[in-house]
């Protein structure tokens, strides 16, 4: 199945204006509203054979030129039999950025979703164990957001000091 056939199938199934598509170099993207993400991904996995979730990531579009939504989440899907790649993309917004979890479809999404949550605070609805993964549990901000300074807010200096005589 080529990309065009898949997109046509999706159009048939979900209606012509359910999503928009864009193409850049060899990347083919399907842009969806967040409500429809889960059903489309499920359809792609079950009926179109996209069995590998190659990558799941997020970004904060706060200062991006002409951006309308704040957080983007993308899924790079691969059909391991035919080798077709497809990128599904969705957007979500403050105050409670939420995206449905695809853990029930691909178990590999587990940690990747936790990472996006850790870095951006995007909540994945239905994830079985959504905790911080890379940063300490007590960390209160989401460091990859564009309004968080690169050098942090002083967390890295905030430890007791051990000197020679006392050790």
């Amino acid at each position: 199945m080529t990309r065009e056939e898949i997109v046509n199938k999706l159009r048939e199934r979900f209606g012509a204006d359910a999503f928009s598509t864009s193409e850049f170099r060899d990347n083919y993207r399907i842009i969806l509203p967040v409500e429809r993400v889960y059903s489309v991904l499920e359809y792609l996995k079950i009926s179109c054979g996209f069995d590998l979730l190659a990558e799941l990531g997020g970004a904060d579009y706060l200062q991006y030129p002409n951006a309308r939504d704040r957080y983007g989440v993308w899924y790079v899907l691969v059909n391991t039999t035919t080798g077709v790649r497809l990128i599904v993309k969705t957007f979500t917004n403050d105050p409670e950025p939420t995206v449905p979890s695809v853990y029930p479809l691909w178990k590999g999404a587990d940690w990747m979703e936790r990472e996006v949550y850790d870095m951006y605070g995007v909540v994945f609805d239905g994830h079985p164990d959504l905790r911080r993964i890379l940063l300490p549990d007590e960390f209160t901000s989401f460091p990859m957001r564009k309004d968080y300074p690169m050098r942090g807010r002083g967390e890295r200096h905030n430890f007791p000091i051990i000197s020679r005589p006392e050790s």
Partner: peptide
């Protein structure tokens, strides 16, 4: 199957 489902490459 597990390897694919868990995104192994």
């Amino acid at each position: 199957e597990e390897a694919t489902n868990l995104s192994c490459t």
